[in-house]
Nucleic acid binder design. Structure first.
Length: 174
DNA sequence: TACATAAGAATAG
DNA sequence: CTATTCTTATGTA
């Protein structure tokens, strides 16, 4: 089934920044936060290097755009029905991502609990895998925090992690 | 409580 | 192979 693997994309804007969304015919592949144009060029460069054609097709994202708008509006949105199509990721990383994906809106889990679900004690490697999450918000890695209630880390900056959690009305340790 | 350090697992370079 | 990483657990003061 190695037909052509076209990648479509669009860019959504929100008060906190822009989001780059990309998908194939099989499902969503990327949802990256972009602080600047430079970031977009990095992403585009990544596709180019791998020989994946990137086409701007906002029309293909009607559903996703709606969901994101509602999400940022504070509505309780469940992204779990959306099909995904990872373009990278080791088997372990994918397991972590899929497990994280099951964390419901407004709930949090610890790195440890995910590790245990995968029968493994390398808690840090879970965090490391989450750091490479290609699907911001859709795979809610912001709902994974430290066991002691601390925020843990966030690839694109803790302020955004806090923002998402507050949006979902999660209580966070000051 | 706060800090140092070990244990633990996976990955990028 | 080594250094790094979005963690916990434990010891010590």
């Amino acid at each position: 089934m190695e037909s052509k693997k076209d990648m479509y994309y669009t860019i959504l804007s929100f008060p906190k920044g822009k989001i780059f969304l990309a998908k194939t015919d099989k499902g969503l592949s990327f949802a990256n936060f972009m602080k600047s144009q430079k970031r977009f060029e990095e992403i585009a460069g990544y596709f180019k290097k791998r020989g994946i054609p990137l086409e701007r097709k906002p029309r293909k994202f009607r559903v996703e755009e709606n969901l994101f708008n509602q999400y940022f509006n504070g509505e309780k949105i469940d992204f779990r029905f959306l099909p995904l199509d990872f373009v990278y990721g080791t088997p372990f990383q994918r397991k972590v991502w899929l497990e994280t994906r099951e964390t419901p809106y407004g709930k949090t889990r610890s790195y440890k609990s995910i590790a245990q679900k995968l029968k493994q004690k390398g808690y840090r490697s879970v965090g490391q895998a989450l750091a490479r999450n290609p699907l911001l918000i859709i795979i809610p890695c912001h709902r994974v925090i430290s066991l002691d209630g601390g925020l843990g880390g966030f690839s694109i900056g803790l302020p955004l992690k806090r923002h998402f959690l507050r949006l979902e009305k999660v209580k966070i340790r000051a």
